[in-house]
Nucleic acid binder design. Structure first.
Ligand SMILES: [Mn+2]
Ligand SMILES: [Mn+2]
Ligand SMILES: [Zn+2]
Ligand SMILES: [Zn+2]
Lengths: 149, 149
DNA sequence: CAAGCAGTTTAGAATTATTCTAATGTTAGG
DNA sequence: CCTAACATTAGAATAATTCTAAACTGCTTG
């Protein structure tokens, strides 16, 4: 790779298909692939399923040398959520978790560490759901198994 | 009732068996039946099952003429929870709900109004719970059905 | 490849829910 | 009554999140 006119670039910025995939992913979601969104999306979507908080993602971004503000992290998390590529989980009233797994699934919550682990939908059988009051539409069913450790 | 040496008392302070029941209830939970706890307990436990937030209970207390501070409401909610006569529910990361129903049960969450409604345990059949990682003990299983209205 | 605008980022201030502090008041037992 | 432990309180402090308004950048159009 020839040295470019810019002083330096982020490590991850060039790499062909990975970048392209992320760009396409953001575009498909109707979002501009800006520098900070790309960097955050790389952290979020280049590993397996993840559960992050705004602070945890912000720390990661800083550690990996991405220049981004906390406000932008909040913006990105909410924007990604509204576009359906993240999902928000309320499990602890002191902070929000965001989940890269947007399929229907459930969670273990480890109370001591404050961490989450996915439970595939097939692992839980929910039968006999009650009918909703007034026949209102169900937007989501969340099962959280809180465990002690 | 002869006028007492104290300037005035709260309206509800005297009333025989209802007071006595609440007093006994707090005592059994290992709590001193103080004026503000009694007043809050009356609001919480004298109606059917309730779901309150600190603010909502505080407003109610003020409206009904109970002199209590917000800090005391938080103290009482947490103390009651630690003694097992309330239970805390995290459904919305912006605030905690406290539930006077401490039996195992589940909830409808009405997203527009931010209100909760109980679902009896018998109304939901949860089969095939996955085994917990490391064989950790389950402390609670919460099912929340989010509905649109 | 400009030019320009909508959309994005940002620092820092503001807001909101909740917790803390330390002083004052109350309960319950002897 | 006296007292010690417990509870309440106002207000300050904290922490997560949102807002503001100005600076910036991606993208479309000429
Ligand atoms: Mn009920
Ligand atoms: Mn908060
Ligand atoms: Zn998940
Ligand atoms: Zn309930």
């Amino acid at each position: 790779m020839a040295p470019s006119s810019k002083k330096h670039r982020q490590q991850l910025t060039r790499s062909g298909s990975r970048q392209d995939r992320l760009t396409a992913y953001l575009r498909e979601a109707g979002l501009r692939p800006t520098r900070q969104r790309m960097a955050l999306a790389a952290l979020l979507f280049d590993q397996g399923d993840r559960h992050v908080t705004a602070e945890s993602l912000y720390s990661e971004a800083l550690e990996s040398g991405v220049k981004v503000s906390l406000a932008t992290v909040y913006n990105a998390l909410h924007t990604f959520t509204s576009k359906g590529i993240l999902r928000e989980i309320s499990i602890d009233s002191s902070r929000s978790y965001f989940d890269t797994n947007v399929e229907e699934h459930h969670h273990f919550y480890f109370e001591k560490s404050g961490t989450l682990e996915d439970i595939d939908q097939s692992q839980i059988r929910l039968t006999r759901l009650p009918k909703t009051p007034g026949g209102l539409k169900i937007s989501r069913v969340d099962v959280v198994i809180r465990v002690d450790g």
